[in-house]
Amino acid sequence: MEKNNKVIQVEGLTKLFGDFAAVNAITFDVEKGEIFGFLGANGAGKTTAMKMLIGISNPTSGKAKVAGFDVFTQAEDIKKNIGYMSQKFALYDDLTVRENITFFGGIYGLSRKRIKEKSTVLINELGLEKVANTLVGALPLGWKQKLSFSVSLLHDPKIVFLDEPTGGVDPITRRQFWEMIYKAANQGITVFVTTHYMDEAEYCDRVSIMVNGKIEALDTPKKLKEQFNAKNMNDVFLKLARG
């Protein structure tokens, strides 16, 4: 029973580039509906670890299951069952809001009928009725990010991976974004967020911090702050990363 609730299970996962261990035997679990923060300095190994979890990079050794599928042998099944959004790659600027939804719906294999239904719901929920036929490139950054998050959920994934989702977005839109994340988590979708902005870490249920390829801390923000005698996550991070 308990096992079914773990949608990400990682044990001793390692990635070597030559002699260099970019990811060095990391072990952790993520529960269904959890908002899990995956932190680390530039070069700590976050991106490499995430690439293995989303099935686009083969681990050197260790074990990992994502959405019930093995990262070594079932990478294609993983891709179908997860959503992905990053600040860098989001939507096509030269397609309209509606065209982007249709395009990604098609990629995820949704039926035309389903895409139509989803488009209407999504556009209404985001309040984008007036710009549904506007090119995405003309929208403010915050709107793009919210739309991009919704698109990553089009195919009802079990887990959504967010790679630094709110960088540069204004504070109000940013909060609307986090409300969307809470809503998704409340519906049972697991949210895996990488970021190096520590105030973003404070929103997560649990947070792991990677230093030089290893997970050096993993707990709720509250407990991490107690453990490191720090007033916020930024201090926790500085204490860990500076050693």
Binding site: G167, H196, M198, L238, A241
Partner: peptide, 10 residues
């Protein structure tokens, strides 16, 4: 400091 980790930012 955009895109720079907390240690370098400080």
């Amino acid at each position: 400091t955009t895109g720079v980790d907390p240690v370098s930012r400080k």
